[in-house]
């Protein structure tokens, strides 16, 4: 049943810019409806802050339907909040109770520097993709799409890995700020498909090298990434990537 009068206390990380020191600040939001998304509650709070002449809280968001991967927020000690399998924009206030206090922080990792408040720079992910997360096929080079049959099972597995939205929750959840889940999902998708075969070995080596260069930590198999991934990307992708990596290392000239 929907409720319209929840009172919520928020402790939000405020940080003017990358150089400034940040701290948690406390805000109260009244008349929160259980049908609101978590971000809509932030809209309400920001509206209030602006009317009071204060600086609204900066947070990343765009599609608000759980697919663009832009929203982040470490909510009550978990990326994207307490509900598993959803992004912050799809987290609704019905997951909280009247009177709750909620702590909200940005993703924290050396490779994700804070830009302002809850906004971080995730361009490290783009650079990892640029290092090898593609199949080198220029426009116009393709053969007929059905000339290369791919079993449904393989296509489905590739799709499951490709469902990653690049939000960075895996890094945020990992105690080592490791990006292995993100990187392995792309490596797995492209290595499963026959189209990805020609660059299979250089791809995994290049992406892994870029991942290390960005300052992400190493995987120690806690499984936190998988548990917090809004798209349910499996750690089996990490095993798959390890396999690809060893094979490529052994084959390297």
């Amino acid at each position: 049943m929907s409720e319209n009068n929840m009172k919520i206390t928020l402790k939000v990380w405020r940080q003017r810019n990358n150089k400034a020191k940040g701290a948690l600040e406390t805000y109260k939001v009244d008349e929160v409806s259980s049908d609101m998304s978590f971000l809509e509650m932030f809209d309400v709070l920001n509206d209030k802050l602006i009317r009071e002449g204060k600086d609204p809280i900066a947070f990343d968001h765009d599609c608000r339907e759980g697919i663009c991967g832009m929203c982040s927020m470490y909510i009550n000690g978990q990326p994207h909040g307490p509900l598993q399998g959803v992004t912050t924009c799809q987290l609704h206030m019905r997951s909280f109770k009247d009177g709750d206090t909620i702590v909200v922080e940005p993703w924290r990792a050396k490779a994700f520097p804070v830009i302002k408040d809850l906004v971080v720079d995730r361009s490290a992910f783009d650079r990892i993709i640029a290092a090898g997360g593609f199949i080198s096929v220029n426009t116009g080079n393709a053969q007929d799409a059905n000339a290369l049959p791919i079993s449904k099972e393989l296509a489905d597995r590739a799709f499951a890995a490709a469902a990653c939205i690049g939000c960075g929750a895996c890094v945020a959840a990992c105690k080592n700020s490791s990006a292995m889940l993100f990187v392995s999902a792309k490596v797995t998708q492209l290595s499963l498909l026959p189209q990805g075969e020609p660059e299979r070995q250089s791809r995994v080596l290049d992406m892994a090298a870029q991942m290390d260069a960005e300052g992400f930590g190493s995987c120690t198999n806690t499984g936190a990434c998988e548990a917090e991934c809004p798209k349910g990307i499996s750690v089996s992708n990490i095993a798959h990537m390890n396999r690809e990596f060893f094979a490529a290392e052994l084959n390297k000239k």
Binding site: A142, P149, S151
Partner: peptide, 22 residues
């Protein structure tokens, strides 16, 4: 039609039938 060819070549995992066709 070229778009589909191009996307498949890039590794876009379109839905497929059991026989491997799109």
């Amino acid at each position: 039609a070229n778009i589909i060819d191009q996307c498949v070549a890039q590794g876009v995992p379109f839905a497929r039938e059991y026989g491997g066709m799109l």
